[in-house]
């Protein structure tokens, strides 16, 4: 693991980044035994049902209603009570919030994630990639201002719906550093399957450094092509929807682009982040993410598209 969690990396093609069987958080630790236990239990029930089918076919099956009582009332009662007894403490562990947790507000959009760190304090806005400290409690404040989405990072904890007009809290404690993948788990429109994101878990001191560094303005345009790209950004009207701190602030319709080039992926976990994919994205969003609210900007000239994509890739 590099100091910054390997920013050049991406979860794309990384096996196990989005798996309920690879647990790296306290919630996932609590869920995994339940998953395995229930799978085994229901396997046993299935075999039992087959045995009953065989039993029902017997011509010489015993008369009487004892099996109706035991199989129809006693057995379900016992198994449901047992399931309750096992799952209730797990559920409690999943929703117990910590008072000193770092609050991260995530709003589900069509089809991306608006992320605000410490919304009542520094209110640092970012998108589509969430950086977490290892071993420090975090509470996600989950919102939606459009349709219902569901926030799910299988390696950290269970899923939680994002419901318009409601605030859902999801406590998380990441236990291992690394890069994980989240996915919208509630059908939300045409590009619902393309609505993913990445989670980077850093050591606590690396996280503090990251938070400190990321609060500043966007990196300055250094090369002539990049200066030109910044001008294209302003002239083409990108700033009507996208904010870049220190360049164009305030717009919130689209993802904040202050550190877009530092993200591991583009388009909500769909493509590796580089100048080429950025150019393809700008020119044909609707092909890469059908139904997204951003129009395809294929009226830019070739050099304008190159300059703009070079500028965005430089924002690390």
């Amino acid at each position: 693991m590099e100091a910054d969690g390997g920013y050049a990396d991406s979860t794309l093609g990384l096996w196990g980044a989005q798996s309920s069987l690879v647990n790296a958080g306290r919630g996932a630790d609590a869920i995994l035994p339940l998953t395995i236990g229930m799978t085994v239990a229901f396997g046993v029930v299935f075999v039992l049902v087959l045995a009953l089918v065989w039993f029902a076919w017997r011509r010489d099956r015993p008369a009487g209603h004892w099996w109706l009582w035991s199989g129809g009332i006693v057995l379900p009662l016992v198994s449901i009570v047992a399931l309750m007894a096992i799952s209730t403490p797990t559920l409690r562990a999943l929703v117990t919030e910590s008072d000193d947790a770092l609050v991260i507000e995530v709003t589900g959009k069509q089809f991306w994630w608006d992320v605000v760190y410490d919304p009542d304090g520094i209110a640092l806005r970012d998108a589509n990639e969430i950086v977490l400290p290892r071993g420090r409690p975090v509470t996600f404040r989950l919102l939606s201002d459009n349709v219902i989405h569901s926030f799910w990072v299988p390696s950290l904890t269970g899923k939680m719906d994002m419901i318009p007009g409601r605030v859902n809290m999801l406590p998380v404690l990441a236990e291992e550093t690394g890069r994980f993948r989240g996915q919208c788990a509630e059908f939300c429109g045409l590009s619902h399957p393309r609505m993913a994101f990445e989670v980077v878990v850093l050591e606590p001191d690396a996280f503090d450094r990251w938070l400190e560094r990321t609060q500043g303005e966007a990196r300055d345009a250094a090369r002539p092509e990049i200066v030109e790209g910044r001008n294209v950004f302003l002239d083409a009207g990108c700033a009507a929807c996208h904010a870049i701190r220190g360049v164009a602030e305030g717009a919130r319709l689209g993802p904040d682009l202050t550190r877009v080039g530092a993200r591991g992926s583009l388009g909500g976990g769909m493509w590796r982040m580089n100048q080429g994919t950025l150019a393809g994205w700008i020119a044909d969003v609707q092909d890469m993410k059908p139904g997204a609210q951003m129009p395809s900007y294929n009226h830019l000239s070739g050099p304008e598209l190159r300059a703009l994509s070079a500028y965005l890739a430089s924002l690390e």
Partner: peptide, 8 residues
Amino acid sequence: DTAMPDLG
């Protein structure tokens, strides 16, 4: 005048 960037 190409739109294809230098991909490094």
